[in-house]
């Protein structure tokens, strides 16, 4: 039996926690910034096009300005030369923000264990979800998106994500 406001107004009203309401709204309107550098980015093209259609999950508004995005998807190899740029883009995004590291290269350097490739972007910026594959199939990208939504659902508004302790190799 409904109690409180719901008892008075019936089904036209739902009471919930502010946290849940905001997470619920955020979840289905992620604005991704795709930091696509290599082959994995070509697979992201498939994720965005009609067959896999990322808009089913509310994340089709791909932004090309980090200032407008709240989800950073790194799809592709990141070299040492690229690292400061990645960091800058991450820093330019406003909180709250989430990061998906897609593909073997972004996660660990992949099979480029050599002098030029960064051995995992998590030495530069914090990562929320890692996706395996070289490249990951489009389904795996979508799965990662759902994972981020799960993380969002558990996060409280009161938690200041900017205060997380992370120190990457380029942080001085």
């Amino acid at each position: 039996m409904a109690v409180g406001a719901e008892a008075i107004f019936g089904e036209s009203l739902i009471t919930t926690k502010l946290d849940s309401a905001i997470s619920w709204a955020r979840e289905s309107s992620m604005w991704p910034y795709v930091f696509g550098t290599a082959c994995c980015a070509i697979e992201f093209m498939s994720v965005a096009s009609s067959k896999y259609d990322i808009s089913r999950f509310g994340a089709e508004v791909v932004r090309f300005s980090p200032r407008q995005a709240d989800l950073l998807i790194i799809a592709g190899t990141v070299s040492y030369k690229q690292a400061p740029i990645l960091k800058k883009i991450y820093d330019q995004m406003s909180e709250p923000k989430w990061v998906i590291s897609a593909g073997a290269c972004a996660c660990s350097g992949g099979f480029y264990d050599n002098y030029t490739t960064l051995q995992g972007i998590d030495s530069i910026i914090p990562v929320d979800v890692y996706v395996a594959g070289c490249p990951p199939r489009p389904e795996a990208f979508l799965d990662a998106l759902l994972e981020v939504q799960k993380i969002q659902a558990t996060q409280s508004l009161l938690e200041d994500r900017a205060k997380r302790v992370f120190k990457g190799v380029l942080d001085v």
Binding site: T37, A38, G76, T77, S79, K81, Q82, I85, F111, Y112, N114, Y115, T116, T117
Partner: peptide
């Protein structure tokens, strides 16, 4: 260029 230099030849 060189932002995606992945050391193909050395590999």
């Amino acid at each position: 260029i060189g932002y995606l230099h992945r050391g193909f030849e050395k590999s």
